[in-house]
Structure formats: structure tokens, C-alpha cells
Amino acid sequence: MEPRSLAEVLRSAQLFWGLEPQHLEKLAAIASEVTWTEGQVIFREGEADDRLYLVVEGLVALEMYIPNRGRATILTAGPHEVFGWSAAVPVVGKKTASARSLQRTRAIAIDAGALCAACEQDHHLGYYVYRTLADVIASRLTATRLQLLDVYAVGKGE
């Protein structure tokens, strides 16, 4: 995919709607397109993978390994959703879950090191990118809380 069309794909994602064209170009310059076949391991928990991803089409499972129980899917990421955000949060640095494609999946990978550097250089871009990531992380947190509440349990909320 050419950088121009990468910028267009980025713009079409809800996350980047508000981004200025010159910032989109900067993101496109450090992004590349990736595809995975069904069942491919994208990264593993604990790895120092240095990319974050925006799903364009397909579905990715984020999994954690529970000793003696095996792998459990904690969340999936579909079109317009970001995963692998921990690569861009220096204090975390490592992948906090494993990722596996559940279908043939196309995504845009953004180099986390280059993203941090671009944000350092251009604080407008940095503000936007990290606000967007804060949104992603906050919605994950809310979703996880709802999952923990076990809202479908009888007599507890329905």
C-alpha cells in the first residue's frame, strides 16, 4: 500500500478522524500494511514487540495464558480497533497479552519507536496520538470492568 493510501485508511478509522492531514502523513510514513492468515500468532505475551496495530479488516484475539487452564481469549479487536498499544507506552514496554488472528486479517502496523520519536518532535501530534491511546486504554478498562461484573448472572442486574 502506498503511503498516500495508508493515510487514507488511517483517516477512515474513527480514532484518527480529527487528525490534521500533515499529521496523518507523518503517521503514514512510519506505518506499513500487514496481513495474517487465520490462526497466525502475531505476538506473544511478554515479548518486546515494537509495533501497534490498527485493524482494517478481520478479527484478532487477545489471549492470556493461564497455567493449568490454557489460553483464554480476553478480548477481540475488529475493524477500526487498535491492539498492541503497550508498545507505545514506555513504562509497559512489553506485550501484555498474546495476539492471534481468528480470520484472515489486514491491519496497519505503526512502529512504536518511530511514533514516540515523532511525538517528541511534534507535540501537537504527540498530544493527539496519546489522547487517542488514552481513549483506547480507557475503553478497554471500562469493557474489562463490565466483563468482571459478570452482568448476565441471574439476579445481579437483569
Binding site: Q14, L59, A61, E63, G70, R71, A72, T73, I74, L75, T76, G78, P79, H80, E81, L102, Q103, S139, A143, L146, Q147, D150, V151, Y152
Partner: peptide
């Protein structure tokens, strides 16, 4: 369709219903 919990045999979405809005415009 999404479910709150699943093992690895499930090939669909996992996560609470409201997050399905993320892909809608």
C-alpha cells in the same frame, strides 16, 4: 455477536456488547 468469555475454540468476538459500537458510524 460477542461473548464475555470464551476458550480458544470460539472463533468469534470476545468483549462486552457496547464495544461493538466502535466499528459503527
Amino acid at each position: 455477536v460477542t461473548v464475555d468469555r470464551a476458550d480458544e475454540t470460539w472463533k468469534g468476538r470476545v468483549g462486552v456488547v457496547p464495544i461493538l459500537f466502535y466499528a459503527l458510524r
